[in-house]
Write a protein that binds this DNA or RNA. Structure first.
Lengths: 136, 136
DNA sequence: GTAATTGCAAATAATTTGCTGGGTG
DNA sequence: CACCCAGCAAATTATTTGCAATTAC
């Protein structure tokens, strides 16, 4: 059914970068990192592989709060926090509440596969920066 | 502080369209509807007003599951369901669980303002279509 | 060997912006 | 009557795609 997929050195490097990243990078950031290892890798290849890896369930694509997608090397569903000041994305370490899916299935009848939740607010670093500024 | 904002007939029409929409339309759909009332309205004006209305809290901008934004004339936070087959977006009528925000505030220390949740799966119409097809 | 994948560059899609004239408060 | 906002078109940004050469299996 699904097309055969080959493990190229480009794909391997991209996956490795995402797994080792402690942030939720954009395609462009992944591209810059990948160039350090494969100098003539192209941005198109990065985008193509990010899509392949997302479709095969190896990574997550996130598109909250910005005009571009961010990627997450941890494919297991988890919650995120978006800082409205510095626009960073953080992992939130509370368990995914799967009971919600069942609740929605009961009220709508839909086949609910999963859900995603993003929290919005101000992160600790930005809170500190704001309260030390004279503008408060 | 924030700039004065004027009520133009364009802005009024755009807001009215969104409030009466029973779907979660794209900027382009809003533009097509608005043209029926103000034939020479421009797409740029639609985008500008959607941003103004979003910033002033009159509408919500949603960007889940697609490459373009959708807009919601109901500015109160509520959950959504995205059908992975037909790509429609539905409102989910379960109450927003604000206790989650407090939980995240306690585990992270962040100032959590709110959260958004989207459910993913297959809607009823698509379920019916799938089970009646010979491909199941 | 052959089909998937690459690099490159051009194409697309969605949204934003500069400018000048018009309409709101 | 000042200044925000409209229309128009060109610019920007993020992402996708066509093609010939390359490479994994």
């Amino acid at each position: 059914m699904s097309k055969a997929t080959r493990m190229t050195k480009q794909k391997k490097v991209i996956l490795e970068i995402l797994r080792n990243a402690d942030c939720h990078p954009s395609a462009d950031w992944v591209y810059e990192q990948a160039r350090k290892i494969i100098p003539d890798i192209s941005l198109g290849t990065v985008y193509r592989n990010l899509n392949v890896l997302r479709d095969s369930g190896h990574i997550l694509e996130l598109n909250y709060g910005s005009t571009y997608s961010r990627y997450d090397g941890n494919p297991e569903n988890h919650y995120h926090f978006y800082c409205e000041k510095c626009h960073q994305l953080f992992n939130v370490k509370i368990p995914v509440y799967e009971g919600l899916d069942k609740m929605v299935k009961e009220t709508t009848g839909f086949d609910v596969r999963n859900h995603r939740t993003e929290f919005y607010g101000i992160c600790n670093e930005c809170k500190a920066r704001l309260s030390s500024s004279s503008l408060m």
